[in-house]
Each structure stands twice: as C-alpha cells, then as structure tokens.
Computed example of a mutant assay.
Amino acid sequence: MKALDDAVAEMDFEFLSSGEHTMSVEGMRKALGNGQNNVVFLDVRSDKEMEYLVLPFAKHISLHELPARMDELPKDKLVVAYCTSIFRSAVAYTLLRAHGFEQVKGMAASMEDMVKAFKPSPLANM
C-alpha cells in the first residue's frame, strides 16, 4: 500500500501542470513513426470495446486484468496507457507507478483523436 501512497503523493500541482505524465496524439505519431522500439502502447479497454476497434500496434490488457498481468510489460520501456475516456488510463498509470514502472505516461487524447491520426493524410505524413 505504501507504493500506491507514494505514487499518488507524487501527483502534486507541479507534476500535473508539467504534462510530463501524458502523451499527445502528435507524440504517439512520432513514437510510431520512429518504429516504437522504446514505447509500448497499453490498451486498457475492455474486451467488449476491442470488438469495435483495435489499434494493431498496442498491447491489450483490460484494466481489471492489469494487476495479474503486469509481468507482460517491460520495465525498461516507456509504457503509454490509453482507453476511451482517459479515466482508466489514469488508473493504469497510477497502478504501474505503484508497481515500480518508472517510464509511464497516459494518452491525453480521446479515441476519436487517436483514430484521426490514422486517416490517409496523417498516415502519409508519418
């Protein structure tokens, strides 16, 4: 429980205002355009949501399964959690930090904004 307390305690005003804990759609595009060798995109949406939209570059672990499956994620790479509403990715962020993941971010974008990045024109610019 102390690790969770410590992870939450670090989320003070300076931390939240810096934006260092988030990744934008542009950041996602850059990471993917660079081959994503040092980034793991973590989709924490439910299995039901996955029936409607899958982003093939991401690792899917539903938020409720994350505590039991953290060993599937590398601690030596940046892990960027995302979901449809940002809420679950914030929970995943906090959980991963509490379990010793130092390189973690949450997507600061909606699924709609993320999907727009994969239309032909933005894709061509990658």
Rank of each mutant, 00 (worst) to 15 (best):
I86W: 09
D113S: 12
G35E: 04
S110N: 11
H21A: 10
K105M: 07
H99N: 12
D76F: 01
D71K: 12
T22W: 11
G33P: 06
K77E: 00
M107D: 05
S46A: 06
P74D: 03
V44T: 04
K30G: 06
M126C: 10
Y93K: 02
M70C: 00
D71N: 11
P67A: 04
F118C: 09
D43P: 00
E72L: 12
K116P: 09
A9L: 14
L32I: 04
K105I: 06
S24P: 07
A3K: 13
T94C: 04
G27C: 02
V25G: 06
N38S: 13
N125K: 15
F57A: 02
H99D: 10
A98P: 04
D71S: 11
Y82I: 03
P56D: 10
C83Q: 05
V80C: 03
L32Y: 02
P56Q: 09
S18D: 05
Y52K: 13
M50G: 10
I61F: 06
M114D: 06
G106A: 14
R88H: 10
P67H: 03
A124M: 13
E14S: 14
L73R: 04
S89E: 05
N37M: 07
P56H: 08
M107P: 04
M1V: 09
L53V: 12
F13E: 15
T22M: 13
M28I: 10
P74V: 05
S110D: 07
E102D: 13
V44P: 03
K116A: 14
S18L: 09
E51S: 12
V8Q: 13
C83G: 13
G100I: 00
H60F: 08
A124I: 09
T84Q: 14
S62W: 13
D76W: 02
L96Y: 04
A98R: 04
T94V: 10
F87Q: 14
Y52C: 09
M107L: 15
K75P: 03
M1T: 12
H64P: 11
P74L: 03
L42F: 02
R88T: 05
R29P: 01
E26A: 10
Y52W: 10
M126A: 09
G100P: 02
A92Y: 02
V54Q: 15
H60A: 10
S110G: 12
K2V: 00
Y52H: 14
D47W: 09
D6Q: 12
V54H: 14
L4F: 06
K119Q: 15
Q103V: 03
F101W: 03
